[in-house]
Design a protein around this nucleic acid. Structure first.
Lengths: 159, 159
DNA sequence: CAAGATTGACCCATCAATCTTC
DNA sequence: GAAGATTGATGGGTCAATCTTG
């Protein structure tokens, strides 16, 4: 027997769907209008910027950005064409490649960050009370942990 | 001056990003493996199924699914090719078109729904306590209301 | 000219090969 | 043969025209 969602669960579920869609779209538009970056571009630049040498193995970068290898490869193609990063051969493993952020990439990230953060605040963080926001964060963390456990079993996002 | 996110806000924000990405991917995979439908397909079929005559104006359908007109038009092309719905001329306004669900579309939705709902429960609803889930729903509603107000001003998703 | 809807070009994502190195 | 990474084909999304009717 199917356990359907009751009315309250339905509306919470729809609110989640709508919020994730609308928020992602809004932030994408803002980021794009401001600096011509997509959310995915931004995420990659952030991750590289947090790393010593602003450099990371492709496979690791794919893992931390929850991207498939193939998708990351295409994405890095575009970012490389834009001059925001370069690929370098990995010295210790000849199969490997490193994505390395260029100075231009760093500059672009630095230029984009303030406006992006303020966009995240305006449309998300500051819309909620600190308690609400913290509770939402904890709930999301639970969901992420559940889904990543599932990933271990089902073998997904492999590319 | 930029008000950066503190560490807790950062991690809540990242949890949100990861949860919305992973959950959407997981549900898409399940729905696709089960009945060959995308989340967008499913949403359209649900909306039509809730309507008298299982029929809706294209522009209204675009509005309720938070889709641009153009995107909906492409989407309906595909669903029409699959035989899940048809376009009909609108009798009262010759500019307009109605999307009408076929019996085959209804059957497909009925076949997909139990497994989809159980997927939503397993990966989302049942991962949280009822209180957590309700609180998350309220938070999302606030975000949606904020973003839809913004939409009124900024004129977006127009197609 | 505005509103409803569609079209085509271009961009991004996914999937199944493929290539190289371990 | 498995792991790291890339490639090309295909399907979906976005945007700026375009067409028709109001």
């Amino acid at each position: 027997m199917t356990r359907w969602l009751d009315e309250q669960q339905q509306s919470a579920w729809r609110a989640w769907l709508e919020a994730s869609l609308l928020l992602h779209d809004q932030l994408s538009r803002d980021l794009n209008a401001d600096q011509g970056l997509s959310m995915a571009d931004y995420e990659i630049l952030v991750r590289l910027s947090e790393t010593p040498g602003r450099s990371m193995r492709m496979s690791e970068l794919a893992a931390v950005t929850l991207s498939s290898r193939s998708r990351l490869s295409h994405q890095v193609d575009r970012l490389e064409k834009e001059g925001l990063l370069v690929r370098e051969a990995c010295p210790t493993d000849k199969r490997g490649a490193n994505a390395v952020m260029t100075q231009q990439g760093w500059n672009r990230l630095v230029a984009a960050a303030p406006s992006h953060v303020s966009s995240v605040r305006r449309h998300f963080v500051d819309v909620l009370s600190p308690d609400e926001f913290a509770a939402l964060g904890r709930a999301c963390t639970k969901v992420v942990e559940h889904l990543q456990r599932a990933d271990d079993h089902v073998e997904t996002r492999a590319g």
